[in-house]
Design a protein around this nucleic acid. Structure first.
Lengths: 358, 358
DNA sequence: GCCAGGAGGGTAAGCGCTTTCCAGAGAGGG
DNA sequence: CCCTCTCTGGAAAGCGCTTACCCTCCTGGC
């Protein structure tokens, strides 16, 4: 099928590589001229005649520019790094989609690194992205509320920006950098308000690990909403587990073991909500929303398809990713303080919440 | 928070960059020696004394190797490209996860490109990955059954491999290259067999665009299974639509408009199956599995959480991605024919299929 | 005591490209 | 008619690193 020659593992014939030099020779011009026409060199015009010859030569020889060489010469690349916890998680996948669309519009390539929630890996990938001289890196997913880690992160980031790299965070990372931040607190408040209006007073919270800044913020929203309504937060009503479907199931079981009288549960992300839903149905035998209301956070695509369809706080993930790219691309006067873009969230009421039974 | 200096957009102070040369000077050794200790240079030993000095100097100066420069000098990079249709699609996200895990084990970085199902973009990203001198590229997602496109793809691939790049396909791309291929035909056959055993004889198929090779293969499995059972395939019973949730819904409505007597439907991927499920419930008013059985393909995570839980053909996506990386990493004698790794699929019976009503 | 051989270190030639600087040629201006 | 610009093109100096290749010691064997 492969029409042009070459078995599939030719070890790079040295003499044959098509370089700019060869294109220039073929076109009978200097390498400088070839560079200028093929890579829009430094605002310098090239005559029609030569331009055409270079283009023809490049096409004929199938010239492929050597990006690493360009990167070296120009001291800048066209790749941006995206560090996520887990690209298989729909939350990050959605953000990544937004990032990639934006990247495409600006002719950038995206290097994706998945840390699987290991802070050490986060640091390591940041370093490697620095090695690659990525033009920018997007720190995605939640930061960790760990003083030492955050300090080291800040240091690495400073070194990176000191070398000309740009940085943007998606969600608060406890670091001085441009940030696009979904309104986690407000969203949690809205969720609680919704449950409260439905008459719920005994509300449990299925939370992720509290070292995640995102979790802390959402928890803070819960607390504030409850306090505003005159309720003192009860530690019993919150249980932490992995920020995943499995974690949600485990947390829900634990929660109802402690407090069987709960009438509603807020899960701090949709993955956990789905896990809670399954646990409620399969292990706890409570019907949703008749006996227990469940509300999630993020509005992942599957929130629509679980039964009952999940009431949740929508975070416009794809847009969030795109915004982060905007931050990175906008050039900024030296010394400007970090910018913050707030991302509004919305309550989406579906079937998993209902009036308290009574 | 950032302890070391530098506002966040310093435009790269030329004189200050920490290069290997500076490390060497600082350590009082030659640049060659520095290179050898820091980058394991060509099997050459370096004395304890100097080695320690270099290491110390590098640490002290916070040396960051310049990957593009290394790439240029070594004529090889440590990045692999992954071309997918849509990273937001759980199917590709799962494969990507497998790829990233494998990449991590081999210290490779992954550049992800999303084509959003545009063949032209596929070609363009392949070219850009070639520019980047990616060590390898993984072609993921289905190929297109389009002669011209496939020809151009083959050409680009040949050029890439001719330049020393490696290629692996996930799923058949109609191209001579190492491939890891899920057993699409067999999976579809198994799905039909399952429905048949449950007594279904009027089976509809909700298919994706037939220019996708994956779709063709699954369709071929359906046809064969039906023929083996003495049924002549009825064109009315198959409808094509987008390979997505929305497509699944549309196709299901169309299908039951044509043939209200169907007792089962096979959707050619889980996204479509979920859409079909929703359409059946919300628009068509048929209960699953009592009135209609539904079966999907791929076993995406959400198959577990839709109600009724989706019976489906499991494709071990993450493993598939990892296998593809294996292919790329294994070195191969020159001129060996392309290798093919078959990936077994499994039928997972859940709640969305049941005996035909009688 | 001489020489082969190995080990450890340095020198320098690139890798493929960008970009500064210079040269020559026309074009206007005085 | 000379001089200054402006416009195109080329020569060449890097960008930061790797890696032959060379040189110097140091060991040993005979």
């Amino acid at each position: 099928m492969a029409s042009s020659g070459g078995s599939r593992n030719v070890p790079h014939r040295p003499g044959r590589a098509v370089t700019l030099q060869r294109v220039a020779d073929h076109a009978g011009v200097s390498i400088a001229t070839a560079s200028r026409v093929l890579h829009g060199g430094g605002g310098r015009a090239v005559g029609e005649e030569l331009r055409a010859r270079v283009l023809a030569a490049a096409a004929e020889l199938n010239y492929t520019p050597n990006a690493p060489a360009q990167a070296l010469a120009r001291a800048r690349t066209s790749v941006v790094g995206l560090i996520v916890h887990d690209i298989g998680d729909p939350y990050f996948a959605a953000i990544a989609t937004g990032v990639m669309k934006a990247a495409r519009e600006h002719d950038l390539m995206v290097m994706v690194a998945a840390t699987f929630r290991d802070p050490r890996l986060e640091l390591e990938y940041l370093r490697r992205l620095h090695d690659q001289r990525a033009r920018a890196v997007l720190l995605c997913g939640s930061g960790f509320a760990d003083r030492e880690f955050t300090g080291r992160l800040a240091e690495s980031l400073a070194r990176f920006t000191g070398d000309g790299g740009r940085v943007a965070c998606i969600g608060d990372h406890g670091v001085e950098a441009d940030t696009v931040a979904p309104d986690n607190r407000g969203g949690a408040e809205r969720a609680i308000a919704h449950l409260w209006e439905l008459g719920h007073r005994r509300i449990g919270v299925v939370a992720g690990p509290s070292e995640l800044i995102t979790v802390r913020q959402r928890l803070a929203g819960v607390r504030r909403a409850l306090e505003q309504r005159g309720q003192v937060p009860d530690a019993d009503c919150t249980v932490e587990a992995d920020f995943t479907r499995a974690g949600g199931g485990a947390a829900a079981r634990e929660l109802f073991g402690r407090r069987p009288d709960l009438t509603a549960v807020l899960a701090l992300n949709d993955g956990m909500a789905v896990g809670a839903l399954a646990a409620l149905r399969d292990d706890l035998g409570r019907s949703v929303p008749e006996e227990v209301s469940v509300i999630g956070f993020d509005d992942l695509p599957c929130a629509l398809d679980v039964r009952p369809a999940l009431t949740t706080v929508r975070v416009p993930l794809e847009r969030t990713g795109a915004r982060a790219m905007d931050l990175i691309l906008a050039d900024v006067a030296d010394g400007t303080p970090p910018r913050t873009v707030d991302v509004e969230v919305d309550l989406v009421v579906r079937e998993s919440t209902g009036p308290v039974r009574g």
